[in-house]
């Protein structure tokens, strides 16, 4: 292997790209958990839904950007239905019941995808704007992957600002810290929960639409991404934005460089990492509260 500097730069970009995709997914899951104390195993299915809706939207409109716009909205709408019908009632039902209800949802979504889009894997084209490759620092890299990295950073920045600078952010932080106390202070936590849940779903849908041109769109893509996402969230610390960032980067880099340096161990590496973190820091690297 000719391991020159450009090789490692490209691999670092690969790791960043995967990290950002994981971040888009895990941030919604983690904030929903932190605020609503709700474990949503169907989060991966919402991501898959985003990809399927994206494929249909882009085929219908003939443009990638239709998928980019429609998928988050459509998934958020489905999220609203889920919230009203299920999530609201399940909030105080304990983690096991939540795990089970959302496990049931995974099954339901799986067959809905089969009924709606068939069993044959689908694909989606990249946007013309970001197709091809970009040359910089002596390397050539797919432009669309740079777009994913950029998008992840933009979402990250936006969420940080939202959380630290706006009233909604303050309420969310208060809710994560102590939901009962926030409610006592006259804050309509219920409405904030609802908004946050929809936002998390929209981000999952966005991740699906963004991932679709790189990956294939299959009925089991949601279950396949679920485990890495959960690992990110648990390693980072449930409910913590910083944790989601740290966890995504950690997993993205471990998976990518594991594949490069120790391919035989790559399949086990992520789980081993999770086990180690849970043993040493049972609440994750950046627990949302003390």
């Amino acid at each position: 292997m000719t391991a020159d500097a450009s090789f490692w730069i490209v691999q670092t970009l690969n790791a960043l790209q995967l990290s950002m995709l994981l971040f888009l997914l895990s941030v919604g899951l983690t904030v929903i958990f932190g605020l609503l104390h709700f474990v949503n195993l169907a989060h991966g299915s919402l991501y898959a839904l985003g990809a399927f809706v994206g494929v249909s939207a882009s085929a219908f409109a003939g443009s990638y950007w239709a998928a980019f716009a429609v998928a988050p909205v459509a998934v958020a709408l489905v999220g609203i239905v889920l919230y009203v019908a299920l999530i609201r009632r399940m909030r105080n039902a304990g983690p096991m019941n939540q795990v089970l209800v959302t496990f049931g949802l995974i099954f339901v979504f799986l067959d809905l995808f089969r009924l709606g889009w068939g069993d044959i894997p689908l694909g989606m084209a990249e946007p013309d704007l970001f197709s091809g490759r970009t040359e910089f620092l002596g390397i050539v890299y797919p432009t669309y992957r740079l777009f994913i990295i950029g998008l992840g950073l933009v979402v990250l920045a936006a969420l940080s600002l939202l959380l630290s600078r706006t009233q909604l952010g303050a309420i969310v932080r208060a809710g994560v810290d102590n939901g009962d106390m926030a409610a006592c202070l006259g804050i309509n936590v219920e409405r904030v929960f609802f908004v946050v849940f929809c936002l998390g779903c929209a981000l999952a849908g966005l991740a699906g639409a963004v991932a679709a041109p790189v990956l294939s769109v299959t009925t089991d893509m949601g279950t396949a991404i679920l485990i890495p996402t959960l690992v990110v969230v648990v390693i980072g610390g449930l409910g913590s934005l910083r944790g989601a960032i740290a966890g995504s980067l950690l997993i993205g880099f471990v998976q990518t460089f594991g594949a490069v340096l120790a391919p035989q161990a790559a399949a086990v590496a992520v789980y081993a990492l999770l086990a180690v973190v849970l043993i040493l820091r049972p609440a994750g690297l950046f627990p949302a509260r003390g």
Partner: peptide, 15 residues
């Protein structure tokens, strides 16, 4: 599509 039926039964049980 038995997955869906099992999923719905499960949801109904918990609810």
């Amino acid at each position: 599509h038995w997955h869906m039926v099992v999923g719905l039964v499960l949801i109904a049980t918990v609810l």
